[in-house]
Each structure stands twice: as C-alpha cells, then as structure tokens.
Design a protein around this nucleic acid. Sequence first.
DNA 1: ATGGCTTTAAAATAAAGA
Length: 258
Amino acid sequence: MRIATFNINGIKARLPRLLEWLDETRPDIACLQEIKTSDETFPVKDIEDAGYGVIWHGQKGFNGVAILARGESPVEIRRGLEGEPEDEHSRYLEADVKGVRVASIYLPNGNPQPGPKFDYKLRWMKRLRDRAAEIWAEEVPAILAGDYNVIPRDIDTFSVKAMQDDALMQPESREAYRRLLNDGWTDAILSRHPNGGVWTFWDYQANSWPRDAGFRIDHLLLSPAAADRLIDAQVDKAFRGREKASDHAPTWVELRGI
DNA sequence: ATGGCTTTAAAATAAAGA
C-alpha cells in the first residue's frame, strides 16, 4: 500500500495537476495540505469521480487539509488539535483508512522569527506531540503525514546559509521535531535516504527549481507497526517540473502487508 | 532584498507562504 502526502498550494488552481497525479500514481491514501478553500467550495465531485473517497477540513483563502482513500471513505477520527480552543486554523485531520491511522498535517510556517507566528508554530508542535502520544498508545499502524515546515538537518537543504534565519530550521523547530523522533516515530524519507540531499519543496522564486535549490519539509512519520512494513519512501520530484505545479512535490511511502 | 513568485480574495491591492 502506498501512502502519499502532497502540499498542493490551492486545490482550485491545482485540480488538473492533482487529478493527473492520482491517475498516474494511484496512491491508496493521499494526504493533502494547503487546499486553500472553504468546506463548501471543496471539489468533492471531481475527486470522487477519480475513484477516491475524501474528507476535508477547509478554510477560506489559506490552510486546509484533506485525506483521500482509493475506493473507500476515510473514517474521520479528529479534526484540529486540542489545547488551544481559540485556534481556528484548519491544519489537522485524522482518520482510519484501510486499517491504518492517518493524519494530514499542515504545520505552521512560523516566519518571521522571532515573533508571534514562530511562538504559534512551537505551541502547535507541542500540541501535535501530545496527540501523537495518544495515537502511539493505541498501538495501531499509524502515519503522521504532511508539510511539517521543518528542515530536520543541515543536509536537508540546498543552503544552510540561505535558510539560517528561517523559522524552518531554527534550533527550537528542529528540537520539537526531534522530540517526535525520540518518542519513537520513524521519519520514512530520512530512514531510506540517510545521507540527505532529498528535497520536497522548491520556491517559485529565485529560479529555485532549475537550480535544484530545494529543501525537505514534507515528512511521513511512522509508528512501529507501520515502520516494520516500510518497503520504500520517495519523492515524486518530476511533478514539481510540470506546468502550473505546486511548489511542493508529492512524497510517499510503500508499506507491505497492509 | 524590507520576498525577486504564486494563490487567494476580491476588485486594487494585500495577506500568506517558506
């Protein structure tokens, strides 16, 4: 079974790209981020016509996450994280799909830092870790997939110098991510590509894609029951080069026996 | 570069992203 995460940067603008990606790669489960549309305007029919059941947590203009399942409907477990009732950003959706617990995560960017947006990012990471611990305790095969907006190591970016002041690779951001790994979650891309140099994002600006000036911020974290079944983890890099592409590329894991 | 693109919302600019 293949489970993918894809920050599509606007589902309206990206619908043709999304549908061709589903058709060409046929992921069993797809977690989407930055759908950038309200619940009412989500293109549910187009996705169902492509053979996928879908649940979504939208927001007008920005943010927004979804979970797609080929040939069946995800069973929603939770939308949003606890711990900050006034937080109205649509950034977290969790479901049971095909015998796996799946979360679609759009972690706050946090720029500029320092500042309130960075503080929000760190609080959100704490709330995510709390929820991850609850899922962990259920001892189910689980995948926390999404745009974490964290560059975990220096070898996960084209340029440490260019990114050194960015919220994505501040020590506090990395420490919060590291805590998840220390809790036992497996970063699938890291485990399959330990030497780095794998990117999932290339900025629209500064000729980043032709220069291959990217970094790795889209992650799939596996519980032990899922990590035991890990066969492969890759980035569908070529989709970044298509016409009207998202600035992120689809990233996925293949699990056996599920 | 005090974001050089891109999307969204919405009617011209502005927010947000990373």
